[in-house]
Nucleic acid binder design. Structure first.
Lengths: 210, 210
DNA sequence: ATGTGTGAAGTGCTTCACAGCG
DNA sequence: CGCTGTGAAGCACTTCACACAT
């Protein structure tokens, strides 16, 4: 069966919840109770998990430690991913220092910027800002696997191409531009302006129903 | 017909593209050419627009200035939305100064934080950090309509409830927690960790196909 | 008794394909 | 002829409901 992106995203949510449960000392949990915590349908959870194996125990549920381990492996979080951030503006700097990324799974190695005035600086957590030109070299030396694009829209496609040529094969794009990934590169977009405008849209159409 | 969230989000994308086109002096554009720019299907664009009226001219396409105006109105961007940011950490501060929000449609009025050490400070763009307790008062005085939640997961539900009680009816949540919106509040989530982990997942499953 | 795994039904989104208008 | 607007088909995701395992 083909695993959809939505399924993979929910696995991340499940994993996060399982880590909470493990910290609370919970040993096992049913899809029903997990669904309650996450405000999802329990069949959805069972189907998502069943894509990758039979992790549950009938009459019991899922063992937290076991499932946590399985999901960590499935999501590729059993090894550390080395991340570059391209664009050292407000957003790039903040993302570099953002504590919300599963800190075991990801390590922000460097920021890159084409503005010489920014190069040489460091974030509060001491991540260095490197010149754009050294991206290919550093990418290979440091084994960077993921890039986060936080550049202006006009520079985004160029930056993406550069990143692709440097051998980085996965990119998270924050620039508000419709980009074409180079062959072999996985591209995901997060468009903050669209999300905010979506709220404006809902506000102008009256308030949420039940 | 019920308008889906996905449609509304695409309208934002269309609007942004139309603003570019207007700046370039383009007078009219067909759904085909718009689709080419945005890497979408042209029928999708026509269907999305048809939800709200017959804006096109057969044999010609859509007049850029006219459609731009219509979409601005539909999305509720013909008036300015006053925005609060809750949580003055890395992310909250960066979002407050982020230039990517359609600057005519949104105005970030204040940040709020429960940490007294942060209160009284200002962002680089001079937006003040206020104490959490004054949120209800400032929300009403300043007519705040939207809140952005950039607090830790553990504090998010509490912050959301507070924001709801202050009369704010639309919230964009960055905290990695499954929240329940108070009645009448529209809630959208952006989960940065999930997006990044999704890339890790794709990397661990081999490279993107055609 | 409890709760998984799953075929089948239900729902919603996308794409096709074409009538009809300018 | 070019292009919109749209019914119908196609596809994908979600939910139901139940056989079956413990």
């Amino acid at each position: 069966m083909g695993i959809s992106d939505l399924t993979a995203q929910r696995l991340s949510v499940y994993l996060r919840c399982l880590e909470d449960l493990a910290r609370s000392g919970v040993r096992s949990i049913s899809s029903q109770r997990l669904a309650g915590r996450l405000h999802l349908n329990s069949a959805q959870i069972r189907k998502d998990l069943a894509c990758f194996g039979e992790f549950g125990v009938r009459g019991v549920g899922y063992y937290v430690a076991d499932l946590r381990e399985q999901l960590t492996r499935i999501l590729g979080l059993d090894r550390c991913h080395r991340v570059a951030i391209v664009g050292a503006g407000n957003l790039g700097m903040a993302l570099a220092d953002y504590g919300g990324f599963n800190s075991e799974g990801f390590s922000i190695v460097a920021l890159f910027d084409s503005d010489p005035a920014k190069v040489g600086g460091r974030t509060r957590r001491d991540i260095p800002v490197e010149p754009m030109e050294s991206l290919p070299e550093i990418a290979r030396r440091e084994h960077l696997g993921i890039a986060i694009l936080a550049v202006p829209a006009a520079a985004a496609q160029h930056a993406l191409d550069l990143v692709g040529r440097a051998g980085i094969r996965a990119v998270l794009n924050f620039a508000p531009a419709p980009l074409v990934p180079p062959p072999g590169v996985i591209l995901k977009g997060v468009d903050l302006a669209v999300q905010l405008e979506n709220l404006a849209y809902h506000l102008s159409r009256g308030v949420a129903g039940p």
